[in-house]
């Protein structure tokens, strides 16, 4: 079975218990403006270009069979969004050009995942599927999680929660931990910043909760979007109502996505002022700690 993966990170400690490998799947139903993995949104392979790494050798221009490629502007080529032609990328010696999004089969991927199995075993770690939205590729994701469970590897999914409700019980059986994103409680704001409404997200969350899934609520705190006490008190309320929430993680907005958006050739990049964010996060953390029974953590 095949899927599109844009990154595999080994030795991760932030996305579930123990030492983990995080597999980033390409494609997301949300288009969050602040997305720290903007290369994950599109469901197809994309070219990324790092000007810093480019040595200006011109091998890419020479290699282009269609002669459409111009130096420092790889996005001028139409064929780049597909894997039909990657001559320029193959020709690039410095790694400045790279194809984001590998079509991988589950066997190959699982083999790569299991190379760290000894570390999972001793640390209680395992794999986390992230993205993008892993449930945009449900068959592929399910197969990976199933294989992992067969090898007694701990499994986690990091999800935006926007997926077909029929998937909930199926994935519940192969997922030890759900890292569940909550972006905004108001439908219209959610729609404005992410491109979708949030009703499906909350519905799936409640269903999972009823099934008794292990849930960690993850709240990205975005300046100008949800960095207000109202949002935090709603988060507290939500956590209080659910039975299965183990922890709330506050994730301060960071600017790592900005350079990646530029590498994708995006012009209008969301780049808010993060000046006061650190103080606010500490305030929110204290507020939540007073109101909720579960653990609260600031995710670095």
């Amino acid at each position: 079975m095949q899927g599109i993966v844009f990154d595999i990170q080994h030795f991760c400690l932030h996305d579930g218990p123990g030492i983990r490998t995080v597999v980033f799947l390409k494609g997301c139903p949300l288009k969050c403006q602040w997305c720290h993995n903007p290369e994950s949104q599109n469901a197809y392979p994309q070219i990324m270009y790092s000007k810093e790494k480019c040595i200006g050798c011109g091998e890419c221009v020479k290699a282009c069979p269609q002669k459409k490629f111009s130096l420092h502007n790889p996005w001028s080529c139409d064929n780049l969004a597909s894997d039909e032609c990657s001559a320029c990328i193959k020709a690039c010696p410095s790694g400045a050009l790279r194809l984001c999004g590998d079509i991988m089969n589950t066997e190959t991927l699982f083999k790569e995942i299991t190379r760290d199995i000894v570390f999972y075993n001793h640390s209680g770690g395992g794999i986390t599927l992230s993205g993008g939205e892993p449930l945009m590729q449900p068959d592929f994701s399910y197969e990976l999680l199933r294989c992992a469970k067969n090898k007694q590897i701990n499994t986690a999914i990091e999800t935006c929660g926007f997926f077909d409700e029929s998937l909930v019980p199926k994935f519940h059986t192969v997922t030890d931990l759900w890292l569940y994103d909550i972006k905004h409680f108001l439908d219209d704001v959610h729609l404005k910043y992410t491109g979708v409404k949030n009703d499906k997200i909350f519905k799936n969350l409640h269903t999972l909760d009823l099934l008794g899934a292990n849930i960690v609520l993850r709240a990205p705190i975005i300046p100008g979007v949800n960095d207000n006490e109202n949002h935090i008190s709603m988060l507290g309320k939500l956590a209080g109502e659910l039975r299965s929430v183990k922890r709330i993680e506050l994730i301060p907005y960071h600017t790592l996505g900005v350079s990646k958006a530029k590498q994708l050739g995006k012009k209008d990049v969301f780049n808010p002022d993060v000046g006061l964010l650190r103080d606010k996060i500490n305030l929110f953390f204290n507020l939540l700690q007073k109101t909720v029974a579960c653990e609260v953590k600031i995710q670095q």
Partner: peptide
């Protein structure tokens, strides 16, 4: 725990 598990591994 993480470092111990690396040593153990």
């Amino acid at each position: 725990e993480v470092v111990s598990s690396i040593i153990r591994a």
